[in-house]
Computed example of a mutant assay.
Amino acid sequence: MTLNVQFITMIAMVLSGLYLGIIQETFRRFSIHWRSRRVLAYFMEISFWLTQTLLLYYLLFRVNSGELRLYVFAAVLLGFSVYQVLVAKAYRWLLEHIIRIVLMCFRFVENVVNVLFITPVKFIIQVVVTCILFVLQTLMRIISFAGKLLLTPVFWIFRTLFGILPKNIQDNLYKSAGFYSTIKNTCRKWVKKILFKRR
């Protein structure tokens, strides 16, 4: 490995250490969202470090064909130390600022979508449902009124005919009506009991 390649390797590994400090800080900042879930936390931690190891080794492979030397690890540690001493505080501030801006943009977009799409759709649905219910209620009232108009003359005719019938036939009809009413009430009680037991 030539001196030029060694120099490029050193620079690349120092920058890699700096990158590792930045990405590790970012990962720690977002890890609070899954820290309470132990299995997910282990999975994310292992995945993170495996990914970073592969990325660093890929960079090393592109620079010096993947030759591992002691100074490579020293350069990575140097870059990581530079981040901790000189960059960490400023990057934490910048990261929090970026997160705050992203959240503000997200809330703005959410409010715009809510105002322009969700709220009008809800209002239209409420208007449509109200109109349908009003039409159904109106139809039911019309049908009820028409039924009363049609059945009232029939009721009068049956009442007149019933009054003409002999007394014994009227008594038998009253008894039959009472019997059928008892059967009807009994059936209703059975249905209520069955439905109550199923619930």
Rank of each mutant, 00 (worst) to 15 (best):
Thr2Asp: 15
Leu3Trp: 15
Ile8Asn: 13
Val14Phe: 03
Val14Ser: 00
Leu15Asn: 11
Gly17Gln: 03
Leu20Lys: 00
Leu20Asn: 09
Gly21Gln: 01
Gln24Thr: 04
Gln24Pro: 01
Arg28Asp: 12
Phe30Tyr: 13
Ser31Gln: 05
Arg37His: 14
Arg37Ile: 11
Arg38Pro: 00
Arg38Lys: 14
Leu40Glu: 00
Phe43Trp: 04
Ile46Met: 07
Ile46Gln: 00
Ser65Lys: 03
Phe73Ile: 04
Ala74Pro: 02
Ala74Arg: 02
Ala75Gln: 08
Leu77Ile: 12
Leu78Val: 02
Glu96Cys: 06
His97Glu: 14
Arg100Tyr: 09
Arg107Val: 03
Asn111Trp: 09
Asn114Gln: 10
Val115Leu: 14
Thr119Pro: 05
Pro120Asp: 06
Val128Tyr: 01
Val129Phe: 13
Ile132Asp: 04
Ile132Arg: 06
Leu133Trp: 12
Phe134Glu: 01
Val135Trp: 12
Leu139Thr: 13
Ile143Tyr: 08
Ile143Cys: 02
Ile143Leu: 11
Ala146Val: 02
Ala146Asn: 10
Gly147Thr: 12
Lys148Val: 09
Pro153Thr: 08
Val154Pro: 08
Phe158His: 09
Arg159Cys: 05
Phe162His: 04
Ile164Gln: 07
Leu165His: 00
Ser176Gln: 15
Thr182Val: 14
Thr182Trp: 12
Arg188Cys: 10
Ile194Trp: 04
Leu195Trp: 10
Arg198Asn: 14
Arg199Tyr: 05
